[in-house]
Design a protein around this nucleic acid. Sequence first.
DNA 1: AATGAATGAGCGTTCATTCAT
DNA 2: CATGAATGAACGCTCATTCAT
Lengths: 226, 226, 226, 226
Amino acid sequence: MAQNKTELRKKKIIDTATKVFAQRGFNESTISEIAREAKISEASIYEYFLTKEGLLFSIPAASSHALFDTMAFHLKLIRGAANKLRAIVYLLMDSYQKNPDFATVLMLYLKHNKRFLDTEGHIAIKSGIKQITQVIDQGIETGEFKKDINPYLIRSMILGTIEHLVTNWVMTGSPDDLEQLVDPMIDTIVLGISNTDNLPVHWSLQQPVKQQGVSNKTQAMLDSKS
Amino acid sequence: MAQNKTELRKKKIIDTATKVFAQRGFNESTISEIAREAKISEASIYEYFLTKEGLLFSIPAASSHALFDTMAFHLKLIRGAANKLRAIVYLLMDSYQKNPDFATVLMLYLKHNKRFLDTEGHIAIKSGIKQITQVIDQGIETGEFKKDINPYLIRSMILGTIEHLVTNWVMTGSPDDLEQLVDPMIDTIVLGISNTDNLPVHWSLQQPVKQQGVSNKTQAMLDSKS
Amino acid sequence: MAQNKTELRKKKIIDTATKVFAQRGFNESTISEIAREAKISEASIYEYFLTKEGLLFSIPAASSHALFDTMAFHLKLIRGAANKLRAIVYLLMDSYQKNPDFATVLMLYLKHNKRFLDTEGHIAIKSGIKQITQVIDQGIETGEFKKDINPYLIRSMILGTIEHLVTNWVMTGSPDDLEQLVDPMIDTIVLGISNTDNLPVHWSLQQPVKQQGVSNKTQAMLDSKS
Amino acid sequence: MAQNKTELRKKKIIDTATKVFAQRGFNESTISEIAREAKISEASIYEYFLTKEGLLFSIPAASSHALFDTMAFHLKLIRGAANKLRAIVYLLMDSYQKNPDFATVLMLYLKHNKRFLDTEGHIAIKSGIKQITQVIDQGIETGEFKKDINPYLIRSMILGTIEHLVTNWVMTGSPDDLEQLVDPMIDTIVLGISNTDNLPVHWSLQQPVKQQGVSNKTQAMLDSKS
DNA sequence: AATGAATGAGCGTTCATTCAT
DNA sequence: CATGAATGAACGCTCATTCAT
């Protein structure tokens, strides 16, 4: 939190770059434009970042760490794999919705870039994503989820749905509200993977219908978030 | 099928561009390189396409039409919304897996490009995607799917999962086989959205577990594809 | 006058090129645009003209010959060097005013082009200009003009003034009427070069003031023009 | 006079461009050639000028201001509209003769370019030209010139003659000496527009014949020029 | 004679990046 | 540290011109 002048300048550059990349597109943005908006010289940007693409790749590092730390913190407080998945998706969606420029950069210019794969920023994201897999694995272990599901597939379904929705949102502006899709999405997947052997039928099949109640619960789980 | 010399040259350019864009990346590719590989002059490329980006946007038009026509044809032969969804996803995955360069261009350079939205190629894709929504709507109408599901969300889950899996595949090479994920994915979603009121419980909950059988059936449905 | 099909096509190209060059500027015009407007293929233009610049240089040939023939014809009918100069300038101005596109091409793209100097079109113009020098020389010989004037300078004054006025006209549209400047211009020059020894003072100094009369006379001289 | 490094580089570019444009022609010149001759990178040229044509249009700005300031200075020292006109023409001719490359660029590539009309460089020239009109107007007011002359026409005659002579000179090299044409030219025009009512006949008609003396006087008037 | 199709050759312009101060 | 100034290295695109039919 306490940041010296250098860190503040670096943050200023990253924030400005996020905004400019999101508005103009990465290739259409110029270092000159970022420098102008950040009121910092072009040369100074190269004091902090080696290349323009390096600057792009630096964008997720800071915020991702914070997000995934928050995520890890919340997951400890929640019981049940399904509920944890719900929290994860909610946190991600909430984060994207509150940082549309960041979401734009992430969805349009970072994912889909092969060179980003080897990056510190991507490693941070991967470690965050790992939490999803862990929750799914836990769900299987505890018998909450079926034994024969493919955790990689389920994780891909969750991430893919999020990415598709958020990408659509940053590109076209619709739907207005991403978060209201969280519960039906999680309900559908959880219903599809839940173990029916040790669950009362009425829960797995009917509970999700009462979406409003679930949504309130979701909200409650996250109210402690800063 | 019968194409005159001009059409053949155009196709040659598009095919070469697809390959080059996929291998090098769109921005890293040069018209000069495409011209060299296609053994056509740079100027000739501009006879057929207005700009480099215009060439990129022209890539999906032809093949997408063919794919979605095939899709529409098959859907007529299949009964049941769930089976139709399975066929759609299988066809898409199969198409991507058989055309990795096209899949790469589509996933990495076309989707996520705002300017592509207004393009003829994108309109073709949208009309194809509409078939997914129609199938979901039909499933709801016939009572096969629950009444309170959000078709837009379900479609987004299907497309998002596909996009995520294919993107991962073109970027990292894994998983080797995309098609083996089709059935578990569809099973999970179908299970999550199926109407339990008018379906024997044993079908909706247990049938999907026998993945191999379903997969064979799926394969059988598509064996007639040219 | 009687022209075969080939000559008609050639004329069509020249006329179209004159229009396009005048409207767009020579460098900004393309052979493609001329071909489109003339409804003739680009390749055909190269059947008639070796290069784009060759086409430009061909523009004055035809019309200049006609103009200077008309000029020579009229000069035979007119007595007095001053009157002949007046007729020459009037004919030129009249020709430019009636063919603004040709005037534009001549003033903006032909004069001032060094390569035009060696051209048949320029030779035609030079032979026409020679008539001005001849008239001035005659005026000196007959004692109508002073002996110590520099014919080259006087010719340059006449041509320079015309060029300046016409250039301004084609570039800015003003003045509306070029011809009304002919008489005052000629009067000024003639007054400046007339021999005062053998002319009654009242003529050289006061006659020109009655511009209207002179103008009528000028008009009368030219009424025979087709 | 005191110029920092940036101004010196800019001047270097303009001077080199003037030379290259004059020698090769504007369209035939390349930025690359100018950069090579000026020993400056191509990119640096674009630091100072937005486009190649912008560089062309920047050429007259500096030198024109200097010339027209000098002109205004001298005009204050000279009595009589005729003498002032003589000084103006002499200064212009002198300037062109001493800067043949600049004269070439001005005559062949700037005048006759419609886009130059809206340029700062053209505005500078227009304000300089206005001095000619003012002198003519003064001559009319003081009774030195006739009341019924058209100042716009007289100005056009002066400018047109200069332009024609200088254009011929830069294109063909002849005549060698432009300045010796100044006096006969001015004499002719002045004689053509002078008011004969209040001038002794011997002055207006015979004085100009002694060209050498006038020329010396003209020279004397201008000897103070820096 | 006429042209649709193809291209060679070139050029202005951009911008990420570096360096001297 | 910070930056103004400078540039190397490309590349998309245009268009006059040619050629096969």
